[in-house]
Write a protein that binds this DNA or RNA. Sequence first.
DNA 1: CTGCGCATC
DNA 2: GATGCGCAG
Length: 297
Amino acid sequence: MTKKTLSRFLTGLILSVLAVSCSHDELVAPSSVLKGAAQSADATASRDSNLALGNPSGAVADPYYYWNYLVVKPQYTMSYHRDRGTPNWVSWHLSSAWLGSTPRQDNFAADNTLPTGWYRVQATSYSGSGFDRGHQCPSADRTGSVADNSATFLMSNMVPQAPRNNQQTWAGLENYCRTLVDAGNELYLICGSYGKGGTGSAGPLSTLDNGHVTVPNRLWKVIVVLPNGTDDASRVTTSTRVIAINTPNDNSLLTTWGSYRTTVDAIEQATGYDLLSAVSASVQSVVEARTDNGPTQ
DNA sequence: CTGCGCATC
DNA sequence: GATGCGCAG
């Protein structure tokens, strides 16, 4: 390892640690204010850290790490891959505190906050490909303001997703998640994609937009369900419901999301990530090995 | 930007 | 019928 790469590595390590430790200040500070207000009102939902359960890939906010670049927005946190033109994963918090009456903005747009010189995937980049612009953090999870909803329409929050996978299977799961919120829960969600090549409505494809965007082979999602409360990973126990699904990016997908349930361990093995790393190891070992068998609607 | 299709609740 | 996922012109 050269001196330069060593220094890059150390910088990355430090930034990575900062990204996790600082996220508390950056992301929770404003929510603490909201939480204080909410608690005096009804002691229920608040807006918590979008990265409360950990940074799965040790993503770093340094453009040097173009394959694992940390993007922090008020609405979600992600690891972005410059050369795939998609996020590796997106992490966000969902509670009723994020939900309001803002309608879908439908303002798909390039994410101009990406580093200078990087290719920015355009709103029209997926046109004619047979793949949807599939939200990672869904539009309907961020309806508190026009700014919140618009953030979900940035192309950095999209992956090429087979229409049936997106509009039926995933939409069904997203709807179910919001019913959990309506029932008094808050959710910590992380979803992502990996592999190359999917089958959309126009047949198989491995890249689009002249190779600027990789079509992922599989899409996964992990959902941690907690009753409304304070922002603290220690609330996750061995009895906490954790839903993990892993779906092929294929238009022949079944519409029922429940049949794609798997373990967090299996997703970690497939991706190399460390999910729910902020949860104690003893709890992780239990909840990550378990396949959810709860209700699906 | 408007209009449209499709699936779900 | 309303909502939510998109698309094309």
